[in-house]
Write a protein that binds this DNA or RNA. Structure first.
Length: 506
RNA sequence: GGCCCCGUCGUCUAGUCUGGUCUAGGACACAAGGUUUUCAACCUUGCAACACGGGUUCAAAUCCCGUCGGGGUCACCA
């Protein structure tokens, strides 16, 4: 057997996701048990969404849970660079090669045209307008410098047979696969091209990834065949799910790894819990370390139905680690390293000093900074003259607004809140009231915006969601409605309003 | 909706490949009891599942077919 080389390929477009740690874990363990190598590659080909801060964040988050890699952008390796934005020339070369060989073609459709096609609900095989365009029109457009993408020529008939470790053979008809864009008009590759090229160049032997990729595997298989490369073995892992059974999402569950860090879960417990998702040890043990898992890991023991991420069981496991594995001294050290330290407390002084008469007043004032959860009733969250339902919905809109913020700083939080208040014609106080309670559990608390900043975005999101639920929640239907409303109009208004507020007043 | 994947207690799972040892085992949660100055932890007990229907077979959670249910995916996002 060839050397085992596997990889995790996160894209730095948001907070580091527990799903990334989950897939990384299984890749790492698979590599270790086969004396192979585990590679980390940054897939930052989406120029509009990728951010350097998120890249640092994924690396930090994965390290925090206790994962490490043999090759990656931070540790190097002989197959680098390990950041796709630094490899664009390579992808372009292969894309051009495919065009020359007639296995791909230039497409001059504009995003608007494609959008229209989608609206007309004729998505499959109708966007290949330029597939057989004659040389002259293409040359013509090239000379006019019209932007183009490169599309893969997917056969019009035939079958693609994928061998997946867990599912044996999965069959797809090429007639149902679009001519996929592999190179965008900005010159960057899409996932499909970059992924296949890198996996080949980096000698990846097994592609262990989430099941959401299963349906796009035919495109990847085709790419390997067109390029004349040997295919890796595909292993599609089951998905992590929300309690309602849908794919794990931050609206319904904390998905950011940092949430678990900020909320004080032990990283070894998180990793251990993640390994329980779809995997069981032969001896039935539930509490085990990464090292123990590696000893007798067998990927064939993975079970397929996606698993619901259960915070309660994770908490129990974390508690088990605290009780069984730590001496009082070690626990105390963990607490200090977490956020019971001078640095964190000093930060809070400006917020509380005026509200203190004695030192003993501090803890009651600030206790919510160290609590996993805060307690209150629905009456205390609800502002005067407002209905529970509208308040819950406003909080949801606020959550949308917070997602637009790239940095979680008091100033920006304040601006977002003021903008939302403006748009919905609520008094600031009517918004901050439920927020105070949601965040601190109390009506009177240290300054809200700073508190929210120090508490972190992930904790705040979870607390706001809880407040919404306390108010009776927002129905699934209504949520969808709000979501589309937000995208269609409110988001624009919000952005305008933000600019308005930021305008220097003279 | 098309295509694809999946289907054991509320949840995570063992068992399925290699039918019998499964009146389906463990864990979380929940309930009761014990222990404890209280609570938590801990211990004991309880609750609770083979999605449904049809085959094959002496025998099906396990093999086959159908139905239903859930999920994923259909972007110049990954």
């Amino acid at each position: 057997m060839t050397d085992v080389r596997v990889r995790i390929a996160p894209s730095p477009t948001g907070a580091p996701h527990v799903g990334t740690a989950y897939i990384a874990l299984f890749n790492l363990v698979f590599a270790k048990v086969n004396q192979g190598k585990f590679i980390l590659r940054i897939e930052d080909t989406d120029q509009t969404r990728s951010r350097k801060v998120y890249e640092t964040a994924v690396l930090d988050a994965l390290k925090w849970v206790g994962l490490s890699w043999d090759e990656g952008p931070d540790v190097g390796g002989k197959y680098g660079p390990y950041r796709q934005s630094e490899r664009t020339e390579i992808y372009r070369k292969y894309a051009e090669q495919l065009v020359e060989e007639g296995k791909a073609y230039r497409c001059f459709c504009t995003p608007e045209m494609l959008e229209q096609l989608r609206k007309d609900q004729k998505p499959i095989k109708t966007n290949n307008i330029y597939r057989d365009a004659d040389e002259k029109t293409i040359q013509d457009k090239l000379e006019k410098n019209e932007p183009y993408t490169i599309r893969l020529k997917v056969p019009e008939e035939g079958e693609c047979v994928i061998s997946d470790r867990f599912r044996e053979e999965v069959r797809y008809n090429y007639s149902e696969v679009d001519d996929q864009i592999i190179l965008k008009s900005d010159g960057f590759p899409t996932y499909h091209l970059a992924n296949v090229v890198d996996d080949h160049l980096m000698k990846i032997s097994h592609v262990i990834r989430g099941e959401e990729w299963l349906t796009s595997t035919p495109k990847h298989v085709l790419l390997y065949e067109y390029l004349g490369w040997e295919k890796p073995e595909f292993i599609h892992m089951p998905l992590l799910k929300n309690p309602d059974g849908s794919k794990l999402s931050k609206r319904k569950n904390p998905t950011s790894i940092f949430y678990y860090r900020e909320a004080g879960f032990l990283p070894e417990a998180l990793l251990n819990y993640l390994s329980l998702m779809g995997y069981s040890r032969p001896n039935g043990e539930e509490k085990f370390s990464l090292e123990e898992m590696i000893v007798d890991f067998d990927i064939n023991r993975v079970s397929l139905g996606g698993s619901v991420f259960d915070l309660q069981k994770l908490s129990w496991l974390s508690g088990k680690y605290i009780r069984e594995d730590l001496t009082p001294q070690q626990l105390a050290k963990k607490l200090v390293a977490w956020r019971i330290n001078e640095e964190f407390i000093a930060q809070l002084m400006p917020l509380v000093s005026e509200r203190m008469d004695t030192l003993g007043d501090f803890m009651p004032l600030a206790s919510f900074f160290w609590s996993r959860d805060v307690e209150y009733t629905s009456e205390t969250v609800l502002p005067k003259k407002k209905e529970a339902k509208e308040t819950a919905e406003l909080l949801q809109v606020l959550l949308f607004a917070f997602e637009e913020q790239e940095e979680w700083l008091a100033d920006q939080i304040s601006i977002s809140i003021r903008a939302i208040a403006q748009i919905h014609e609520w008094k600031i106080r009517e918004i901050t009231h439920p927020l105070f309670v949601a965040i601190s559990g109390k009506k009177v608390a240290p300054p809200l915006f700073d508190s929210m900043e120090y508490l972190g975005k992930d904790i705040c999101r979870v607390r706001i969601v809880k407040a919404m639920e306390t108010l009776g929640g927002v129905s699934k239907k209504r949520l969808q409605k709000l979501d589309s409303l937000w995208k269609k109009s409110m988001k624009g208004q919000f952005e305008e309003q933000v600019l308005e507020i930021q305008k220097p007043s003279d």
